[in-house]
Design a binder for these strands. Structure first.
Lengths: 382, 382
DNA sequence: TTACATTGGTGCATCGATACACCACTTCTG
DNA sequence: CAGAAGTGGTGTATCGATGCACCAATGTAA
């Protein structure tokens, strides 16, 4: 909650009347309002409101008691709508993600919602499918709905079009997108170090002796993907392996959401395997791509990671399924829970004294989808 | 996306002017209100409201024009909050699911949100973790927030505790839970035929020659799971295979959400494999369980489905990953998109003339996680 | 000329909660 | 004992949109 101290909040979960005592008048009647409570407790609505909002410092204990009991007995719950209209503060956080059909974003959404619940906030879900127009449309709609806090799972290079909103007070947290020069002031970014992530993944494969390493991604025109690709190139360079453009596959089509990312991974690896000199290993932009790539390998009769002939695959994110996949996926873990918590903290705190942007450390999780390049292969390309 | 057409516009009702010229005053000022529009157009707020709400039958074309232009030039967007306070109608649908971390519910949530968008509705996301108390708490909270339409992905046997809400006008759609005798009137159910699903899965394994068939589920005290188990038993009975209690594993602990369902599947199969006579095949309650079970098989050094020694595994849902898994999962498909659409239709239509509950047909999708029982095994238990 | 429609639009109470200004009353304090 | 300080509340305007009741002005029938 943006406010400093937590009000006594008679209505909050802890003190909330047990469901059993709550009476929801069955007679289709209107809801219980603050005025009903007031007249039941023989005080003014203001007093009830004061208690509700922690302004009860100089309230007589007996009064406090009476009001609390009235609230309980009537099963009163303040109208969020009225409160919001009056205060301008919405107890709602907008969550814009590419698609919760992707388990990474699904897990994220679930964590965010759980965190939000802790301060009585609700979460409005928006699936942008990585379409900038939709992304913008959602923000507009959220703003019009009085939502002043948004977590934006985006990686659009420029967030300049959102400046009008941040300037008017939108608390915006960009997730999975490192802070860029020229970003609107006040924008908080929470992201993993994507360059390092790409580097780690590639280095891992290099360490295993691979030299022809592919890179599979969706549309590359996003911050995080660009950074990961840069990390890939840096690792190659450090190992004195030539970067070959044709080993990088990225989705030619646009506007493909994350729901279909496995499909893209499949297409990607299928394409790379058709090369005259196909890669012996690939780095993929996320675990769904990796899983799609595994399926493509299977389609092509190739084992993952394979003993003699085969292909090593590294994912990104470390979604739940990564460990359960067959083979268990080697991947780059994002500290999802920490990131979600950080995002929520950024929203909780007032603008200004809030936390700065953060870049968290990715972590290589080596499992079984990667293996040492076969000796025969090593001889061919030392 | 499964949907036919894409909405042209995130925001506007048909009458609303285009947003292209919208100016969001950069000067941190308050939002544009209906009064600003009114004075700009030199009419009363009522007139603007009338136009906005289609009460413009007897309005002079010139006036209409002036107002429309003012709306455009000021970039006016009506406040959802104020509107809702006044009308009581929220443009919001509550979506309560076990956990969007589970890809099945993630896909569902995404589809629901996409459908909701078509009538300018927003979706409030709630993850119940299958905890009845949370489920109820969410409904209360949603009601207090003015939400009058809820899609509840539950399978609680009794929804009686929600009767007070439905009686006061909550439009409630139960998803993944067949209609029960004694359900509140007006409750619409959308579900797959779970009994048949359980039957199909089991029959498939029986057809492959299996006789010791396990069943792995979470807490069984839910409608859909109970029905699936009943289908399993019916199939066994029809094939004259004895039902053995010890082959049915269900989560002893309570309150486990769907985020951890793979973990439960893993535990389940691990337990069943420790039996003196372990099953040669298992039916699992959903694909995440199936994936967990595959991991357990791998842990135990067992192949899926295996040639000689091995175990066949059937899932449920047919999530995206099912086909991409290794081996591709045999599973029972739920027509998710159809079900989501139906749920939304139920919400769209007025109570009374709305659609009745529906039970949709599940479909066996036989892939590679199931195989014929080995000849040697068949000799042992004919 | 009066009665009464019709057209085109406005006034205002209202939804429910909030928070600031203010008040009546008691208790100190010099 | 006047005036200040403190106690325990209340009155009321307000957030922005809505929609019913109403009104002024013109047309039109008896």
């Amino acid at each position: 909650m943006p406010r400093g101290r937590t009000p006594t909040r008679v209505s909050a979960p802890a003190t909330r009347p047990s469901v059993s005592t709550q009476r929801v008048s069955a007679s289709g009647g209107a809801s219980v309002t603050i005025r009903d409570v007031a007249s039941a407790a023989k005080v003014s609505p203001s007093t009830v409101s004061n208690l509700l909002n922690g302004r009860d410092a100089r309230m007589h204990p007996r009064t406090r008691e009476r009001v609390a009991r009235a609230i309980n007995e009537l099963g009163y719950r303040p109208s969020r709508v009225a409160r919001q209209l009056r205060t301008g503060r919405a107890q709602v956080i907008g969550l814009v993600v590419p698609s919760v059909a992707n388990p990474f974003w699904g897990s994220f959404a679930r964590t965010v919602e759980a965190e939000a619940l802790r301060d009585q906030h609700q979460v409005l879900l928006c699936n942008s499918e990585r379409d900038p127009a939709r992304e913008h449309g959602y923000i507009e709609e959220l703003w019009a709905g009085g939502v002043r806090s948004v977590i934006l799972g985006t990686s659009l290079p420029s967030l300049d079009h959102l400046r009008p909103f941040t300037e008017r007070g939108l608390r915006l947290v960009a997730f999975d997108r490192e802070r860029q020069a020229g970003d609107p002031p006040g924008l908080v970014s929470v992201s993993v170090d994507n360059h390092r992530g790409g580097y780690l993944a590639t280095q891992h494969l290099l360490d295993l002796g691979h030299r022809r390493i592919g890179f599979i991604s969706g549309a590359i025109a996003t911050v995080s993907r660009g950074r990961r690709l840069a990390g890939y190139r840096a690792a190659l360079a450090d190992a004195r392996v030539r970067y070959r453009r044709q080993l990088v596959w990225s989705n030619p089509g646009k506007g493909f959401g994350d729901g279909e990312s496995a499909e893209l991974g499949r297409q990607g690896l299928t394409a790379l395997l058709r090369l005259a000199e196909p890669p012996t290993a690939v780095v993929t932009i996320n675990d769904m791509y990796a899983i799609g790539a595994c399926a493509a390998a299977r389609d092509a009769g190739l084992a993952v990671p394979g003993r003699g002939r085969g292909i090593s695959i590294v994912g990104f994110d470390d979604i739940t399924i990564a460990e359960l996949y067959n083979p268990p996926l080697s991947t780059i873990r994002q500290p999802l829970a920490d990131m979600a918590r950080f995002a929520l903290d950024a929203i909780r705190t007032q603008a200004g004294d809030g936390p700065e942007s953060t870049v968290m450390a990715p972590q290589l999780v080596a499992r079984a989808s990667t293996a040492r390049r076969s000796a025969r292969e090593e001889k061919k390309v030392p």
